[in-house]
């Protein structure tokens, strides 16, 4: 039961993080919130027993893709119109 509550909680947080990263007008915030989304996803996968996938997501999704997004946003205009 505890695991199910944990599962549901993470799933709802995932939706919140996804909506937030698309909602905010600042692209840097958007990139960082997307990193949060990736870490939540990694947590969920570890809970589902997919340890290898979780490890990959923690290094690739939350690490490299956030860094690459931030590096790109640095050279673009930070503000987004929508």
């Amino acid at each position: 039961m505890g695991l199910e509550i944990f599962n549901t909680f993470i799933l709802l947080l995932l939706v919140v993080a996804a909506v937030t990263s698309l909602w905010v007008k600042d692209l840097l915030v958007s990139a960082v919130v997307f990193g949060v989304y990736s870490f939540l996803m990694c947590l969920l996968w570890a809970e589902m027993g997919a340890v290898d996938v979780a490890f990959t997501e923690a290094t690739v999704g939350a690490g490299i893709s956030t860094v690459v997004l931030v590096a790109t946003v640095f050279h673009l205009r930070r503000k987004s119109n929508d």
Binding site: L27, S30, A31, F34, A50, L69, S80, D82
Partner: peptide, 22 residues
């Protein structure tokens, strides 16, 4: 309309599918 937002959307789409597979 923002291209970076579009790409973040693409990544969210992708992780949703991965989540389903897992």
């Amino acid at each position: 309309r923002n291209l970076v937002k579009k790409l973040i959307g693409m990544s969210i789409f992708q992780t949703a599918i991965i989540l389903f597979y897992v």
